[in-house]
């Protein structure tokens, strides 16, 4: 498994598309000057922009790595020799997945460092009204990375049955939007102000809500940018949710992958 992990890591680093995506991190250079457009919250704006850029890069990475990696291995028949080896298919899948996950964490960490510099520069020019809370900033980046790792897990799930890259790529894009909206829709349906929805629809919506991923939980951007404190229990809850949900998705993926015919 460690073996698959290492090879995956190597493959990502040597990939040209990855280089292109990382290149987009150069946008960080623009942030301090864009932040000056703000009238009263230059630091907040630079934090927003930094976090958004990180999110965006991680989103691209997760779609691209998750959506194409496993699929390409199967498509180009790299899996033929590899899966005939004694290690199990689940070890292969989990090894590959953890390679990508570790990579996303690494990129998040590096970009986080760059973001700190960017924010510090802006804050140096336009001192913020209230001090920046770096813990919240890093926490937000960490959970952002977690969210995209979940998306990679979904991409793997789709790849384990897909015969073309449409399902993994577009499937995970859908998951991205649906996961971000699920809480909103749920809140809307269950708001006392909402009338005219039958209880059957409500129950069905609630059921779907329980199954779909909930990415709103991972969104701590507001807390980071505006220094709104988070409860420790909230952080723990999100962490536990992430681990459990991730294991769930990956286990389904391995199950399907074990059953898959390689031809």
């Amino acid at each position: 498994m460690l073996n698959h992990f290492e090879i995956t890591f190597k493959s990502i680093i040597r990939d040209r598309i990855f280089h292109g995506i990382i290149f987009s991190a150069l946008i960080f250079l623009l942030i301090p000057s864009v932040a000056t457009l703000s009238m009263r919250q230059a630091t907040e704006l630079s934090m927003t922009l930094s976090l958004s850029l990180i999110s965006f890069i991680l989103l691209l990475l997760s779609l691209f790595l998750g959506g194409t990696h496993l699929w390409r291995d199967i498509e180009r028949r790299y899996t033929y020799p590899v899966l005939s080896w004694p290690s199990s298919r689940s070890a292969y899948l989990v090894g590959k997945f953890s390679g990508i996950a570790a990579f996303i964490f690494l990129v998040a960490l590096l970009l986080g460092g760059v973001a700190v510099l960017t924010v510090l520069i802006t804050a140096g020019i336009y001192p913020p009204e209230r001090p920046i809370v770096w813990n919240l900033f890093f926490l937000s980046i960490f959970f952002d990375a977690c969210k995209y790792i979940l998306i990679v897990a979904f991409a793997f799930l789709f790849s384990s049955v897909a015969t073309s890259f449409f399902l993994p790529v577009f499937g995970s894009i859908c998951i991205y939007f649906v996961g971000n909206a699920s809480q909103q829709v749920h809140d809307y349906i269950n708001a006392p102000a909402t009338i005219g929805i039958s209880s059957i629809t409500k129950n069905m919506a609630t059921f779907v809500y329980y199954i779909l991923p909930n990415f709103s939980a991972f969104d701590f951007k507001i807390n980071a940018v505006y220094r709104v404190p988070i409860q420790v229990s909230g952080v723990l809850m999100t962490g536990v949710y992430f681990v459990v949900y991730l294991c769930m998705v990956i286990s389904v993926a391995t199950l399907l992958f074990e059953k898959r015919e390689m031809n």
């Binding site: 290492e6 090879i7 493959s11 990939d15 028949r77 033929y80 590899v82 004694p86």
Partner: peptide, 23 residues
């Protein structure tokens, strides 16, 4: 395999290391 394909971004040396470790 027939008409085999291997990770083309690896060198033979790296690939064989991968194989040997897996076995």
């Amino acid at each position: 395999p027939e008409n085999p394909a291997f990770y083309d971004y690896l060198t033979p040396e790296e690939y064989l290391t991968y194989v040997a470790r897996s076995f």
